[in-house]
Simulated assay, not measured.
Amino acid sequence: MRPAGYFRWAAAGAFALTLGLSSCFTERQNEGAQLYAAHCASCHGDQGQGLERLIPGVAAADYVAQHRDELPCIVRKGLNGPLVVNGVEYNQVMPGHEDLTDSQITNLLNFLQTNWGNQNQPYTIREASDLLGRCNGSDGQ
């Protein structure tokens, strides 16, 4: 037989655990937006709008949908040379982000895939790591 206050303590403990897990997942869920703000927004714009004809936008960008298999390596290794986004040609150097883990690149790209008019399928961590392997860019994390 359990003491009278046991169930209250058990319920309070379960509630605290739920809050703890919830905030853990919430922070991880927002990681893509945080990574974009830290690593991409200074060039691509805080709303993905780009910079006129100098730097392509990622908001409602056909490139994001059409070059899905290349995007993880572009984030990791950067890009040098011409590309066309929504019918406009760009030719600037984009630095890579070797400091990001595979998981962070996945979360960053999933943020891009599902925001600002982009309605594309999110990546799985396995898919992003496999794609990063094509450019020797996977860190297995």
Rank of each mutant, 00 (worst) to 15 (best):
R53G: 08
Q104R: 00
G133E: 07
L21H: 00
Q104V: 00
N30T: 01
T124L: 07
Q141L: 14
D99Y: 03
A33P: 06
L35H: 00
S22V: 11
G5M: 05
D62H: 01
R2E: 04
V64F: 06
A65P: 06
D69M: 05
L79T: 10
C135H: 12
Y90K: 06
N80L: 08
L132H: 06
Q34C: 01
S138Y: 10
A128R: 11
L19F: 15
P82E: 15
Q121D: 14
Y36S: 05
L132E: 12
S23L: 13
E98G: 00
F15T: 11
S42T: 09
T114R: 08
G57V: 11
V64Q: 08
D62Y: 03
G81R: 09
Y63F: 15
L131V: 14
G140P: 15
L17N: 09
L51Q: 15
E31G: 09
G45K: 02
L17Y: 07
K77V: 11
A11K: 11
G13I: 15
V58K: 00
G87R: 10
L131P: 12
L51D: 12
E127I: 03
R53C: 00
H44N: 04
A16M: 07
V58N: 04
L71I: 13
Y6S: 03
T18W: 09
G133D: 08
Y63D: 01
S22G: 15
Q47S: 15
R8D: 12
S103P: 00
L79E: 08
T26Y: 14
H39P: 01
L132N: 10
S22C: 11
D62V: 03
D102W: 14
L19S: 03
R28H: 13
T18C: 14
P122G: 11
V88D: 06
L132V: 04
L131K: 14
R53I: 02
T26W: 12
G137L: 05
N91R: 00
V75N: 07
R68V: 13
I74F: 01
E52N: 10
I125P: 04
Y36K: 05
P95M: 10
F111A: 09
H67C: 07
Q47K: 15
L19D: 05
D62K: 01
T114Y: 00
A41W: 00
Q29V: 04
I105T: 01
G81L: 06
R126G: 08
R76M: 13
E31P: 02
P82L: 06
Q121Y: 02
T26D: 07
P122L: 02
P95I: 14
Q66N: 14
N110Q: 11
R53E: 05
N80T: 13
W9A: 03
S23R: 03
L54C: 01
L19R: 11
T124I: 06
